[in-house]
């Protein structure tokens, strides 16, 4: 028996170990990896190219602009030459106060939108009531209608705000943060429907058992929501906060309509640079340098935020299960 087995073994032809470099599989893989690297690198370059231009231009002096040999790296590169443009714009843009106001406004809006979308999303995810599907269709409708459609009426409503004649005299809410607060808290802010949709998906994905246990044990509906559901949805709420923050920070149209461009906010101080430059009568080339510096100063806070929290931005949609 044993001998038979060993004899059978010997009849198996010896496998010759070929080098992996001789298989077509290896070469196909390598070629594809190479092509993929080139593709990915190319696309990444297209995306960060505008950023790189601005960054390099913001460190230049006027002379570098006339120098045909200078494309990316300015002739002089030391601490003073790098900071000079930034130092100039720091004053022109009223940078500290404009940045502070922009951050505060974006935080208020993001916080309120996060709260309202969580409440509304939870209502859609966990309760059955008459007309639920209709209401949810309306949420999607608010997204699909171009915001310009309601821009003029919104402007007039806030200019002569009387809450459908319920107030004795109309108040002018323009120039205050009230339009932002009112629209955010009622889930009608910029792309708020998107956040409601995300939160609904998140709450739908959370297990029902914990919530039911809490209800059976006598916790009220609100308490269950606050102590059981909110912790489960915390990371998704952070995502909503971040998106709302970024979109409000970047928004120009609505912010200008509600606050008029005299407010000390970053987009407006960036806009006003043009007028300042006209007064100072700088050369075209120098204005270009300063514009790029201004844009970097505008984007920088977001880039910092992104650098620290990119994990949440990117994994967000995966984790919120927007797909399901």
């Amino acid at each position: 028996m044993a001998t038979e087995l060993s004899r059978n073994f010997k009849e198996v032809p010896e496998v010759r170990h070929k080098s992996k470099y001789f298989t077509s599989h290896f070469w196909a893989e390598t070629l594809w990896a190479l092509a993929r690297t080139i593709l990915v690198a190319g696309i990444c370059y297209i995306i960060i190219y505008p950023l790189l231009i601005k960054l390099s231009s913001s460190m230049m002096t006027e002379n570098d602009m006339y120098d045909m040999l200078v494309k990316w790296i300015p002739r002089k590169l030391n601490y003073d030459s790098i900071v000079q443009n930034y130092r100039l714009l720091y004053g022109y843009m009223k940078y500290p106060s404009a940045l502070f106001n922009s951050l505060v406004l974006a935080s208020i809006v993001a916080l309120l939108q996060m709260v309202s979308s969580s409440l509304i999303g939870y209502g859609f995810a966990r309760f059955d009531f008459f007309g639920k599907n209709l209401f949810f269709a309306l949420v999607i409708l608010t997204l699909l209608v171009p915001p310009q459609m309601i821009m003029v009426p919104m402007f007039l409503n806030f200019r002569f705000f009387d809450f459908f004649g319920m107030m004795p005299a109309s108040v002018n809410l323009l120039g205050t943060y009230w339009p932002f607060i009112l629209t955010s808290i009622t889930g009608m802010g910029l792309r708020n429907g998107f956040f409601i949709y995300i939160m609904r998906q998140v709450f739908k994905g959370l297990p029902k058992s914990l919530e039911e246990a809490a209800l059976v044990d006598g916790a009220g509906q609100m308490r269950t929501f606050l102590t059981i559901m909110i912790p489960g949805a915390a990371s998704a709420m952070l995502v909503v906060f971040l998106f709302a923050f970024v979109w409000q920070y970047n928004d120009y149209q609505f912010t200008r309509m509600y606050l008029s461009n005299t407010a000390t906010l970053l987009p407006f101080s960036l806009e006003q640079l043009t007028r300042t430059f006209d007064v100072e009568s700088y050369s075209k080339e120098y204005i270009s340098i300063l514009n790029n510096t201004g844009m970097i100063m505008f984007i920088a806070p977001l880039l910092l935020l992104y650098a620290f929290l990119q994990r949440y931005f990117i994994e967000s949609i995966e984790r919120t299960g927007i797909v399901g």
Partner: peptide, 24 residues
């Protein structure tokens, strides 16, 4: 439960009427 559902989405209903349907 249905009433609670309305309570939770009430901000949206108010907002929809005041800041969407009205303006539309």
């Amino acid at each position: 439960r249905a009433v609670w559902g309305y309570v939770f989405i009430s901000p949206f209903i108010i907002g929809f009427i005041a800041f969407f349907l009205g303006p539309i």
